[in-house]
Computed example of a mutant assay.
Amino acid sequence: MNSEVRITLRLPSELRDRLDTRARADRRSLNSEIVHLLEVILGDPVEEADSS
Results as ranks from 00 to 15, higher is better:
residue 1 M to E: 07
residue 1 M to Y: 02
residue 3 S to H: 12
residue 4 E to T: 14
residue 4 E to P: 03
residue 4 E to G: 11
residue 5 V to N: 06
residue 5 V to M: 02
residue 6 R to E: 05
residue 8 T to M: 05
residue 9 L to N: 06
residue 10 R to W: 08
residue 11 L to V: 11
residue 12 P to D: 15
residue 12 P to S: 09
residue 12 P to A: 11
residue 13 S to N: 15
residue 13 S to Y: 09
residue 13 S to M: 12
residue 14 E to C: 04
residue 15 L to M: 13
residue 15 L to W: 06
residue 15 L to V: 15
residue 16 R to M: 13
residue 17 D to L: 12
residue 19 L to I: 14
residue 19 L to A: 10
residue 20 D to I: 05
residue 20 D to T: 15
residue 20 D to P: 00
residue 21 T to C: 02
residue 21 T to Y: 07
residue 21 T to N: 10
residue 22 R to K: 12
residue 25 A to H: 09
residue 25 A to I: 07
residue 26 D to R: 15
residue 26 D to W: 09
residue 27 R to G: 08
residue 27 R to H: 15
residue 28 R to E: 09
residue 28 R to K: 15
residue 29 S to I: 06
residue 30 L to Y: 05
residue 30 L to C: 02
residue 31 N to Y: 05
residue 31 N to K: 07
residue 31 N to P: 01
residue 32 S to H: 13
residue 32 S to W: 05
residue 33 E to V: 00
residue 33 E to A: 11
residue 33 E to C: 13
residue 34 I to T: 02
residue 34 I to P: 00
residue 35 V to I: 15
residue 36 H to T: 12
residue 38 L to H: 00
residue 39 E to H: 08
residue 39 E to N: 11
residue 39 E to V: 03
residue 40 V to I: 12
residue 40 V to H: 08
residue 40 V to D: 10
residue 40 V to W: 03
residue 41 I to S: 13
residue 41 I to N: 08
residue 42 L to Q: 07
residue 42 L to K: 07
residue 44 D to A: 00
residue 44 D to T: 02
